[in-house]
Structure formats: structure tokens, C-alpha cells
């Protein structure tokens, strides 16, 4: 069931996930489409997430946005004071942030694997940090090894913050400990995107990849063909998987395997490295007396596809 409507305010709205936004030419959503999108969300009982570009939007847009409950996703560059989610597009950008002043905000750090590996020691943030690795699909065996080391370092950093009696949340490590079932992105099922052209898409990445890949418009509403394929129950590999923190990105799935319900080998290995690092963190914290009611079992594979015959 749909719960969220993502509204891209502009063609240059910041990416907050795996996809890159290559668009450089500003194109604001029309005010009438913005109003219609808000009305649609109100009627469908959807929480709106407005995604901001890196420039200040016109006052009449700001006024319209404030007519409904919502979340704001904005690039760090514009320093939007009331942003709920702040997006950093590199580790360098993140390192300059005064994180102490923004503990209540969700930070999204988008960076490639090597950038994260080089800077992981600077990620001591006592708040919610979502790290998005932007080049998963190109990972090689060497990258997997490097990522494993990165996660080990990150685990130690998170542990240190815990020891200072704080409660850090890093999606790659703490989500899996707290989750008891899959917590995927669920684009197409729980959330849908309204693009600046007034049309609906599975998510912003689908829009940026091909504007014709639409699933409806504000006049005729949403019609997702083969909608069931976005559900976990129709994903043969994922439905048996316990890397619950994995976003199960349907866009990346389609890009790498041609099917929205099938993840790539690289996606699965990365998710399992995170899962196993989460387990290590949990074991460490349990020695300190924390989270004793949680457990993550040991497994001997990194890609569920390799053990599919045992499902």
C-alpha cells in the first residue's frame, strides 16, 4: 500500500540514493502540478517527501509546500534550515559539517566505496547517518575486501560512540541489529515519485533514466504494470534473505539483471558484508551488556543465490 509520495521539485533536485542526477538544466515543477501533487497526497493519505535542488525555490512554492505535513530532503550546499534530511555528495562535503548542531536531522552521505574507505575514520556522528555507496554495481573482489575492512573500522567507530553513552545510528551497521524483517526501499509499493513533468515514476532514478518510463500522471492516476514484481513476495532471492538492512534497490536490480525483483551478485555481497559487520558489532556490544535480546546468526555465504538450491 502506498504511504509516501516523493516530489522532485526540480530536474536538478539532489539525488539521495544510488542513482546519479546528470541533469544540469533547471526545470521547476509547475506550480499547478505541485498543487495537484499535494492534493493527490492528501486524498490518498500519503506523506510527502519534497526533494530540493541546490538553489532557493520561489516563495510561492515554499508557501504551497507548507500547506501539508511533509519531509524536506535537501542538499547540504543550500543549508536549508528546516530540512529533515541533508544530503552530502562526497566525504569531503560531510567532513566540513558541524554535525553536533544537527543531531536531529538525518544525514545522507553519498560516496563511492573508495572515498568511504579513505574517510571512514571521520564518520563519528552521534545521530542518524545513512551511507549510500554509489558504485556497488562495479565492485570487484578487491572492492569487497576493501569494503569489509571499511565496515570493520566503521564498527569500531560506532562502538566508541556507544561507549560514550550515545546512540549513534548508521544504516550499514545498526539497522540490521534493530530490524526483524526486511526494510527495503519499496519503491512502487510503499512510495511513488512525482517528477517535475507532472508524471509519476517508480522512483527518481526511473525518471532520470528515461522520462518515458512513466507509471501514470496526475490526471489519470497511477497504473503500475506488473506491480507484484516490486513486492518482496515475488523476489525469489530476496524473500529468503536476512540482510534486512538492504534497500533492495529495484532500479539497481533492473540496471544489473534486467529484472526489478532480482539483485546483482555485487548487491548481495555488499549487503551481506554489512550484515556480517552488524553481527560483529552486536557481539561486541553484547559483551558490554547492550542489546542482549538481539541476535544475528552466523552464515557461510555472501550471496544467497549461491545457496538457492537449499532454500
Amino acid at each position: 500500500m502506498l504511504q509516501y509520495l516523493v516530489i522532485l521539485l526540480d530536474d536538478t533536485s539532489v539525488s539521495y540514493c544510488h542513482y546519479e542526477n546528470p541533469k544540469k538544466v533547471k526545470r521547476l515543477i509547475s506550480l499547478s502540478d505541485l498543487k495537484a501533487g499535494i492534493l493527490f497526497a492528501m486524498k490518498q493519505n500519503l506523506m510527502i517527501q519534497f526533494v530540493y535542488p541546490d538553489y532557493e525555490i520561489p516563495a510561492e512554492y515554499q508557501k504551497e509546500i507548507e500547506t501539508i505535513d511533509h519531509h524536506k530532503i535537501a542538499p547540504q550546499k543550500i543549508q536549508l534550515k528546516n530540512a529533515d534530511v541533508v544530503v552530502f555528495n562526497s566525504c569531503k562535503e560531510f567532513s566540513t559539517e558541524k554535525t553536533e548542531e544537527n543531531k536531529d536531522k538525518i544525514f545522507v552521505l553519498r560516496a563511492n566505496g573508495k572515498d568511504v574507505a579513505r574517510n571512514v575514520s571521520t564518520f563519528a556522528h552521534d545521530g542518524r547517518l545513512n551511507i549510500i555507496i554509489t558504485d556497488i554495481e562495479t565492485f570487484t573482489e578487491n572492492d569487497f575486501s576493501l569494503y569489509k575492512e571499511t565496515l570493520e573500522q566503521l564498527k569500531n567507530t560506532v562502538k566508541e560512540i556507544f561507549l560514550q553513552e550515545n546512540s549513534p545510528q548508521v544504516n550499514l551497521l545498526t539497522d540490521r541489529i534493530l530490524l526483524e524483517k526486511m526494510n527495503n526501499c519499496n519503491a512502487g509499493i510503499e512510495n511513488i515519485t512525482l517528477a517535475p513533468n507532472g508524471k509519476f515514476y517508480i522512483c527518481p532514478a526511473f525518471y532520470l533514466e528515461d522520462e518515458n518510463d512513466t507509471v501514470g500522471n496526475l490526471t489519470n492516476c497511477i497504473d503500475i504494470k506488473n506491480k507484484h514484481l516490486y513486492k518482496l513476495s515475488n523476489a525469489p532471492i530476496c524473500q529468503k534473505c536476512d540482510a534486512y538492512q538492504c534497500k533492495r534497490c529495484v532500479w539497481l536490480n533492473r540496471k544489473t539483471t534486467r529484472e526489478v525483483n532480482t539483485p546483482s551478485h555485487e548487491q548481495c555481497v555488499v549487503a551481506h558484508l554489512e550484515r556480517n559487520a552488524s553481527r560483529n558489532l552486536l557481539l561486541d556490544l553484547q559483551q558490554l551488556g547492550a542489546w542482549e535480546d538481539k541476535s544475528i546468526k552466523a552464515i557461510d555465504y555472501f550471496d544467497p543465490f549461491e545457496v538457492k538450491d537449499k532454500f
Partner: peptide, 14 residues
């Protein structure tokens, strides 16, 4: 091999 994964995980119900 990534392009083969959907074929090799196909089952009747999905």
C-alpha cells in the same frame, strides 16, 4: 552472470 540470475531463480509461483 548477473543477467543469468533472474532465469536461474525463476520459479512457478513468482
Amino acid at each position: 552472470q548477473n543477467l543469468l540470475r533472474p532465469y536461474l531463480t525463476l520459479n512457478r509461483c513468482t
